[in-house]
Design a protein around this nucleic acid. Structure first.
Lengths: 204, 204
DNA sequence: GCGATTAAGTCAACATGGCTGACATAACGA
DNA sequence: TCGTTATGTCAGCCATGTTGACTTAATCGC
């Protein structure tokens, strides 16, 4: 035990509850974050609770697919790639980099594995043949759906629990959580959930 | 380029939009996930969009603190530990393991660093002296608040954007996203946001 | 057509933060 | 006293993020 304090004595070194309560009242935190922004922002404590709930929710949101992935020798990174390729098939490598905000090397590693194992195929862009458009194979589609299934069940149940109309609220909330500069990008990604049916628009 | 397909020919190997639309209509997915559960669950597509938004939201939620952490030579793991120690000071190592659902070794690594650098102190439990109760130092508290600040701003703005009453909806949703077995645990953790002020209630 | 740029892939090396397995220590409790 | 529990730690592995440098192929500007 490196540097253990005695049961109560040395505790002044720490910031025990008492002192902290005081500090809270005293400094009034002039930071610039929540300071009752005219339209009565939620108290900091409430917001912190929401932050914690978000952590717990996301922690469990990823649990089911993580377990499945292990059986396939894949990790969460593979899930992310496979998901976006499946949902927005035909996207470019650059798109994926943008979505995931990871480096080319990181993506390359997992993408290569998914391709080698037959979950994803590439296809040169017809307009710009440097581009590698990504598509799921049937196998990839099947795995993507299997991974999504428990998450959809969870989401569905949680929305039901949250009450009618909660989906719209949640959606607005989540969208606003995204960095402002990123929002148009996110919107445009979300707007193409698989080139609808036959790509009869601008791609033939 | 490992195994590139020609622009259009080999694409049958993949599952291009056409086939996929068909499959979707054909198999009707008898999986057991959403199948219009009597109370009219949201269509799968909608749920998938929410799942994606959740990903984007969480991705950006962690961005600001991650950047700050880098200046301190810390990572996201440190943030998580520091946050919970700060918010629920006096918790035991075992509690932290439970919250984070990581192994003792993983926690040990980051916890040790936080202790060595003076952000957290330990104190033997007075009832059970095997326990190591964790407290933030002033320094730890300061860092925790600095990390939390941008997240609170973001949350506050997003809730405002989502409209009045959104906080309650969001809270219900997030709580329901947590694994059912974990919910009591989460509730009890959330119920002790720092032994309030002086522990004048049920804890002294 | 040529040179600059762009899209993608790759090598090498490294950091973080998960993991398992084994084991040590101290304190509790029957 | 002995078994169990709470914590810490050593050693090593794996997944996934990072930087930096470089190649190849294709496009684009001129």
């Amino acid at each position: 035990m490196t540097d253990l304090n005695e049961p109560v004595e040395t505790a002044e070194k720490a910031a025990p509850a008492k002192a902290r309560g005081k500090a809270k009242a005293a400094d009034g935190k002039p930071r610039g974050n929540g300071r009752e922004s005219r339209k009565r922002a939620l108290p900091e404590a409430k917001l912190l609770e929401v932050a914690e709930l978000l952590f717990f929710a996301y922690r469990d949101f990823t649990r089911d697919p993580d377990a499945i992935l292990k059986d396939f020798g894949f990790g969460r990174a593979h899930h992310r790639v496979l998901h976006f390729v499946n949902r927005h098939s035909g996207l470019r490598v650059a798109d994926l980099l943008d979505i995931l905000t990871i480096t080319k090397q990181s993506l390359g590693r997992v993408l290569k594995q998914l391709i080698d194992k037959g979950y994803i195929v590439q296809q040169a862009g017809s307009a710009d043949r440097r581009e590698r458009l990504l598509f799921p194979t049937e196998r990839g589609r099947a795995l993507a759906e299997r991974l999504a299934a428990p998450q959809l069940v969870r989401l569905s149940a949680a929305l039901k629990e949250a009450g009618p109309g909660s989906e719209a609220v949640l959606r607005r909330f989540l969208e606003a959580m995204v960095n402002a500069e990123e929002r148009p990008k996110v919107s445009s990604i979300m707007a193409s959930p698989v080139p609808d049916e036959a790509g009869s628009k601008g791609d033939g």
